[in-house]
């Protein structure tokens, strides 16, 4: 009996640390693996749809082209700023973990607080981005072929608001009918249509195309239809960036909880700051996911 006890590895009775990592860290890693697979499932599904509709899938740079307080089109700049904010908050998180190893309570408090600030700024930026996405920008016209066409001027993408002579952000809720668009196209020959496959029609072609195919004018985006193009595009946008934003939000909550614990001295009494390290793992993972979302949603 005693011999049997000696031969039984200690790990089976819960004594040892497998891989020299604590229980908490291992479980965080295992959770992150499953979460990584969930996100790659989302992004792979997005890729599937893009490969299925290569001709008519919306061009990200036509959709995400705004920057707060700046006029005109600035594709990529705002998401690049969001990426920078998240990388920066990852750096402050590593610094907090590092000072945790050295048991320097005040520096952990400083860098954790800055990480919370970074995460919050990211969330606000995302809210701004969603607001813009939902409100819409150029407007689109849905057709019987289920692809959305856009207005153009001199072979460059334009907007329905421009042609109708109104400002989309003047506080009014605008609604236009297909007939209004066609009448306006007849009055303004410099405007014409860009089809979903980026083909430009002349003004006369546009009018007969709309007479034949147009079903309704779409302003803005929701889960069932959006002005940017294929219906799945907005769905993926909401699901992928929303799921990621929810992770950032949970991360900020976790960071606030451990910040309170650090201030109260919980980890000082415990003798180690491993909890900061575990939440740090989660926080870096959120940054990691954003690196992929940035590439596959905005760049590619």
């Amino acid at each position: 009996m005693s011999e049997h006890k000696e031969n039984t590895p200690k790990a089976w009775s819960g004594g040892d640390k497998p891989f020299n990592a604590s229980y908490g860290k291992l479980m965080m890693w295992f959770f992150l693996i499953t979460d990584a697979l969930t996100f790659s499932g989302f992004l792979a599904a997005y890729g599937w749809s893009r490969f299925k509709y290569p001709e008519i899938w919306p061009n990200p740079e036509d959709v995400f082209s705004h920057f707060p307080f700046l006029e005109g089109d600035h594709p990529l700049l705002f998401v690049a700023l969001m990426t920078f904010i998240l990388i920066m908050s990852s750096v402050t998180m590593v610094l907090a973990v590092n000072y945790g190893h050295k048991m320097q309570k005040n520096k952990v408090i400083l860098w954790l607080a800055l990480t919370i600030v970074g995460g919050s700024i990211f969330l606000l930026s995302q809210a701004w981005e969603w607001g813009h996405f939902i409100h819409g920008d150029r407007g689109g016209i849905d057709t019987k072929t289920e692809s959305v066409v856009h207005l153009a001027k001199d072979n460059e993408l334009s907007s329905i608001y421009d042609m109708m002579g109104v400002d989309s952000y003047d506080g009014n809720e605008y609604e236009f009918t297909v007939n209004q668009i066609i009448t306006s196209l007849e009055e303004n020959p410099e405007y014409h249509i860009r089809k979903a496959n980026r083909e430009f029609l002349t003004n006369e072609q546009s009018i007969s195309y709309l007479n034949e195919n147009a079903t309704e004018v779409i302003l803005g985006a929701n889960l069932t239809r959006n002005e940017y193009g294929h219906r799945l595009f907005a769905d993926y946008f909401y699901f992928i960036t929303g799921f990621h934003g929810f992770h950032v939000f949970s991360g900020v909550i976790l960071l606030i909880i451990i910040l309170i614990n650090v201030i109260k001295g919980t980890y000082e009494r415990r003798g180690h700051y491993e909890m900061v390290e575990k939440v740090g793992l989660y926080w870096h993972f959120v940054d990691l996911v954003w690196v992929f979302v940035f590439t596959f949603f905005y760049l590619v």
């Binding site: 990584a36 697979l37 790659s40 792979a44 890729g47 599937w48 490969f51 299925k52 509709y53 290569p54």
Partner: peptide, 22 residues
Amino acid sequence: LPALILIPYMLFILLTEGLYAS
């Protein structure tokens, strides 16, 4: 290993199927 095996596999399946679907 799970990420490096499963994710490329899933991408391979879905992206080739996306091509066929189109």
